[in-house]
Amino acid sequence: MPAADPIITIERFNEAHIEGITVLYNDPAVARQVLQMPFQSTEVWRKRLAPENERVVQLVALHQGQVIGNVGLEQVSRIRRSHCANIGMGVAVAWQGKGVGSRLLAAVLDLADNWMNVQRVELSVYADNEAAIALYRKFGFDTEGLFREYAVRDGLLVDALSMARLRRLLKAS
Rank of each mutant, 00 (worst) to 15 (best):
P28V: 01
P28L: 03
A29R: 11
A29N: 11
V30E: 03
A31G: 09
A31H: 12
M37L: 13
M37S: 14
M37W: 11
M37A: 14
F39D: 07
F39S: 10
F39N: 09
Q40E: 11
Q40D: 07
S41G: 07
S41H: 09
T42A: 02
E43M: 08
E43P: 15
E43D: 10
E43Q: 09
V44N: 02
V44M: 08
V44S: 06
V44A: 06
W45E: 02
W45L: 08
W45G: 03
R46G: 09
R46Y: 06
R46Q: 05
R46E: 06
R46W: 07
K47Q: 05
K47G: 09
R48P: 13
L49V: 07
A50C: 08
P51K: 02
E52A: 15
E52I: 12
N53T: 08
E54A: 11
R55M: 07
V56E: 08
Q58M: 04
L59Q: 04
L59V: 00
V60T: 00
V60E: 02
V60H: 02
A61N: 04
L62H: 00
H63Q: 11
Q64F: 10
V67P: 04
V67N: 01
V67K: 00
I68K: 05
I68N: 02
I68R: 03
I68A: 06
G69A: 03
G69T: 00
G69P: 06
G69L: 01
N70F: 01
V71Y: 01
V71I: 05
V71K: 00
V71N: 00
G72C: 05
L73D: 01
L73Q: 03
E74R: 11
Q75C: 09
Q75N: 08
Q75I: 06
V76M: 14
V76G: 09
V76I: 15
S77L: 15
S77A: 14
R78D: 04
R78L: 10
R78I: 04
R78C: 08
I79P: 14
I79K: 15
I79H: 15
R80T: 14
R81N: 14
R81W: 13
R81E: 14
C84H: 15
A85D: 10
A85I: 07
N86Y: 12
N86V: 12
I87Y: 10
I87M: 09
G88M: 05
G88E: 09
G88N: 09
M89W: 04
M89K: 05
V91C: 06
A92P: 01
A92Y: 10
A92G: 12
V93R: 10
A94T: 15
G97L: 10
G99M: 03
G99W: 01
G99Q: 06
V100D: 00
G101T: 07
L104P: 13
L104F: 08
L105T: 06
L105M: 13
L105I: 04
A106S: 13
A107E: 14
A107H: 07
V108E: 03
L109N: 11
D110S: 03
D110V: 00
L111G: 13
A112R: 11
A112E: 13
A112K: 13
W115A: 00
N117F: 08
Q119L: 11
